[in-house]
Design a protein around this nucleic acid. Structure first.
Lengths: 310, 310
DNA sequence: ACAATAGTGTCTCTAAGACAGTATACT
DNA sequence: AGTATACTGTCTTAGAGACACTATTGT
């Protein structure tokens, strides 16, 4: 909007702003986080069922001011899109996700009410249990002092070098689709929490088309073909098959047979038996497994071999 | 680059330019089109095997000048991303694709050699046999005179209203990742064909990272889970099961059993028997089918019902 | 002993693939 | 008659799901 005025004749189209919106799933809100049930914010943490939670950010600027929105914001000039998504999630959740994947690029003209055109790249991410248990990133301004951050899986993520704005503090997390431009100082309600965790089933009314983005992210997460390889990222580095099954059930929304699940998950050969067992359970202790980084032996799209029975 | 100079202090990041690249698949080049085999352009049309073809555009500007590239270009201010993809394909292929789907958004910083940051949204499309047989769109400057264009399937495509530049002529088709800015007049080699159709197996060296984009598009097309529902778009409105099988074989790259293919494709219930038959074949004439727009009765991601044996 | 989950064995049914066999057009 | 493809039937096998059963912990 506030580019040095370029008349329509010499510049028939303004370049659209590029922003990122993120849907960061976790199996539970981080301890101490502000949670939101339905429309009314409640700070209850107990009896959380096994469902998916996502962090939301309250908008502090005019289009949809006060509404909840997905974390996000405009891309910086020296950031990849992945970097922007990572930074947005860190600012909102104060944690680094263990998995990040691009969803879709939304570029309809109707999305921007104003003259400023907006193209939004949506991402979805997974925050694992050990991600959530890690030290909150509060008051972090640079990336360096976080000794050995788990390398995000996609393209070069270490490129987040230096943050010039204190936008990682909770009260300043950016809601996506924020207008591009110099950051204006937030209003004086800075002590009101503007990040809340919400169950993915019972979201409040979101700003922009963020409800559609969330639905799309959920559908993608549930599309069984892919998530079997990443579901373990909701858990720590070692886990039992029962825990892994609970993840699948939470994502799918229904119960699966323990015996068949065990067979199938072991048949893909991606789990490694650590030899150790659970302790302190009120029942038979389960084996602990680790996920293998090895590529699956069978290439999924390989041509089926003729069977040529003997 | 040529924005009215904004110092880094008052504008810490320039908004990246948004462009679109398209991979438009067809089973054969349109009749009379310029074709390219390997590195050397040959105008041969005969004995084209059943493979996938895509249109390429020769770059006329400096980064990678003279190289072949995917059709595309920057988004206009009043265009959706789909519109841009559609317009780019029309300009290169002079036909309207029957299917269009977004692939991925590429936004690495390394992609732009220059100071101008570039975010590219990749699309893939399918040009059906009747699309190719339609009148070429040559010399079209507006959209109106094309009486009843087949409504593209995704979000509102009729929004392509008026084209201000004569960029739909063959010699002026825009290669993607072209620098944003006022269009400079093309050099005087305007009579050299700068659109060529190429077999997807034997592409020349492409500009930018377009080879990776093409690979990704091919992988997506082949990912069996999805393409069964759209493969028929390579054909006309009525077709035989043998033709449909040939499409599947071309996409998959290997032969499938005719008997089993017939059973499986009929079992999904999406084909409607027109009651008519092929004529003039040197063998038994096949039934003609039409594709049903109905949603498949079984929702693919539906929860498996417990079998509850009687 | 009881509760609760881990883990094994096995049956059934479906769907994919291999392939033989029949049908119907044109030359 | 010969050939080429359309179409039908049937056998085999791998995998998914249902479910009974054993194993091992804590209370």
């Amino acid at each position: 909007m506030e580019f040095a005025a370029a008349s329509a004749s010499e510049r028939p189209y303004l370049p659209p702003a590029v922003a990122v919106s993120t849907v960061a799933f976790a199996l539970r809100p981080p301890s101490g986080a502000f949670t939101l049930i339905g429309e009314s914010p409640i700070d209850q943490m107990a009896d959380a069922p096994v469902t998916l939670w996502i962090p939301l950010v309250r908008r502090t600027r005019e289009p949809f001011r006060g509404r909840w929105a997905l974390p996000g914001g405009p891309t910086r000039w020296n950031e990849t899109l992945n970097d922007t998504a990572l930074r947005s999630i860190r600012a909102a959740a104060l944690r680094t996700p263990g998995y990040l994947e691009q969803l879709y690029a939304f570029g309809s003209i109707e999305r921007s009410a104003d003259a400023q055109r907006l193209v939004t790249i949506a991402y979805w991410a997974m925050l694992g249990d050990d991600d959530l248990a890690a030290e909150p990133l509060a008051d972090v301004r640079t990336d360096d002092h976080h000794g050995d951050p788990p390398a995000p899986p996609l393209t070069g993520p270490g490129a987040v070098r230096r943050w010039d704005d204190p936008d990682v503090a909770v009260a300043r997390a950016i809601a996506s689709d924020d207008t591009v431009g110099p950051p204006v100082p937030d209003s004086n309600d800075a002590n009101v929490a503007n990040v809340a965790w919400c169950s993915a089933d019972r979201l409040p009314e979101l700003a922009f088309d963020h409800a559609a983005i969330t639905d799309y992210a959920l559908a993608r997460l549930r599309s069984k073909t892919e998530y079997a390889a990443v579901a373990h990222r909701f858990l720590g580095s070692v886990f039992t098959i029962g825990q892994l099954r609970a993840v699948h059930e939470a994502v799918l929304g229904y119960a699966v047979d323990p015996a068949n699940f065990r067979r199938q998950i072991l048949a893909q050969g991606t789990l490694i038996d650590t030899g150790e067992r659970e302790t302190g359970t009120p029942h038979r202790p389960a084996r602990l497994y680790r996920f293998s980084n090895e590529a699956a032996p069978e290439f999924p799209d390989a041509r089926p071999q003729p069977r040529r029975s003997a």
